[in-house]
Amino acid sequence: MQPNSIEHLQKLLSQASEVTDANLSTIDKLIEHIPEDMTATVQAGMMLATFQEQLAKGGQWLPVDPPHPHDLSVGKLLSTNANGPRRFGFGTIRDWLIGLAFVLPDGQLVRNGGKVVKNVAGFDLCRLFVGSHGTLGMIVEATFKLLPLPQKETFLQKECKSLKVAEKLLEQIWNSNLQPCVLDIHRMNDHPITLIAGFSGANTDVKSQSNIAREMGLTTKTDCRYDWAFRSTAHCSDSVAPSNLFS
């Protein structure tokens, strides 16, 4: 099934006895981006990378970073609750979703939430749909709150001889004044256990926090692509969060 519009999808669903898959790649428009309100509404077929490029023209972004954004549509981002290493500091896509439109199996179009950040009207179905894998309906449109693009980002790592050493360093960071947007531990194949910390924001703030992190031993520069490599080689889908290591 490959509808060319939301209305076409409604018609196809209302006439279908069974639907195993639907290609929404042509339902891919940016409905609106209001920089002064820091919100944007987009159709589900647009690729996340394209959406981010459009938002960047207004100096803003949606602060999620799942792997392979050029191949990940907004609809799939929501239905799978895809995320990346910045989830530590920015949360997941559920935290940025404020409005949703979806089509039920009988073809009925339902809208929930709103287009303003402080909308509190009605029952919140948006969070319910995130991670539902299309079992509740087909997401066709979403409205997100946004953030300004960071002036600077820096990611640093340190290889640790043991999990105990990594845990001690994590606790040191946790008890400091640092505010990392990324804080991760991973181990790929036979490589050493590696701790990564990332900082995002204003130039002076990122520089200051990075200097403190370097004093703690995180001296090697890296980037968020480590997460993509880790997921493709590890048996589990997520790296280890600090809360899983100590309380």
Rank of each mutant, 00 (worst) to 15 (best):
residue 128 L to T: 11
residue 67 P to D: 11
residue 156 L to D: 00
residue 118 K to H: 12
residue 213 A to M: 15
residue 192 P to H: 12
residue 93 I to L: 07
residue 209 Q to M: 15
residue 23 N to R: 12
residue 162 S to K: 11
residue 174 W to K: 01
residue 78 L to P: 13
residue 149 L to Y: 03
residue 151 Q to L: 00
residue 13 L to P: 11
residue 230 F to K: 08
residue 216 M to G: 03
residue 160 C to G: 08
residue 229 A to K: 14
residue 1 M to A: 10
residue 185 I to Y: 06
residue 131 G to N: 11
residue 229 A to I: 10
residue 63 P to N: 06
residue 22 A to R: 11
residue 44 A to P: 00
residue 100 L to E: 05
residue 123 F to P: 12
residue 22 A to Q: 10
residue 149 L to W: 05
residue 190 D to I: 10
residue 85 P to Q: 09
residue 205 D to F: 06
residue 120 V to E: 07
residue 99 G to P: 13
residue 71 D to F: 06
residue 70 H to Y: 09
residue 33 H to V: 10
residue 3 P to L: 04
residue 21 D to P: 08
residue 24 L to E: 00
residue 107 G to V: 15
residue 14 S to P: 14
residue 68 H to V: 15
residue 91 G to T: 09
residue 38 M to C: 07
residue 100 L to H: 08
residue 129 F to N: 14
residue 146 L to P: 04
residue 104 L to I: 09
residue 81 N to W: 15
residue 241 A to H: 11
residue 107 G to Y: 13
residue 221 K to E: 04
residue 81 N to H: 13
residue 46 M to D: 00
residue 97 L to T: 10
residue 107 G to S: 12
residue 133 H to M: 15
residue 144 F to C: 13
residue 106 D to P: 14
residue 62 L to E: 07
residue 147 L to W: 01
residue 208 S to F: 05
residue 4 N to C: 08
residue 82 A to C: 01
residue 105 P to D: 06
residue 225 R to C: 01
residue 52 Q to R: 07
residue 241 A to F: 08
residue 45 G to A: 07
residue 6 I to C: 04
residue 213 A to P: 09
residue 216 M to A: 00
residue 45 G to S: 10
residue 239 S to A: 09
residue 139 I to P: 04
residue 119 N to K: 02
residue 95 D to V: 09
residue 141 E to Y: 00
residue 98 I to H: 11
residue 7 E to L: 13
residue 101 A to C: 14
residue 150 P to Q: 02
residue 87 R to D: 03
residue 197 A to V: 01
residue 96 W to N: 01
residue 208 S to E: 01
residue 107 G to F: 14
residue 101 A to H: 12
residue 57 K to C: 05
residue 242 P to W: 03
residue 216 M to N: 01
residue 209 Q to Y: 06
residue 8 H to G: 07
residue 109 L to E: 03
residue 138 M to E: 05
residue 39 T to C: 13
residue 70 H to N: 07
residue 186 H to G: 03
residue 187 R to M: 15
residue 78 L to M: 14
residue 246 F to V: 13
residue 5 S to R: 06
residue 95 D to C: 11
residue 183 L to F: 06
residue 140 V to I: 11
residue 94 R to H: 06
residue 34 I to A: 14
residue 76 K to H: 12
residue 17 S to Y: 13
residue 93 I to Q: 02
residue 132 S to Y: 08
residue 1 M to Q: 06
residue 90 F to C: 02
residue 247 S to R: 03
residue 154 T to K: 06
residue 199 F to P: 06
residue 118 K to A: 11
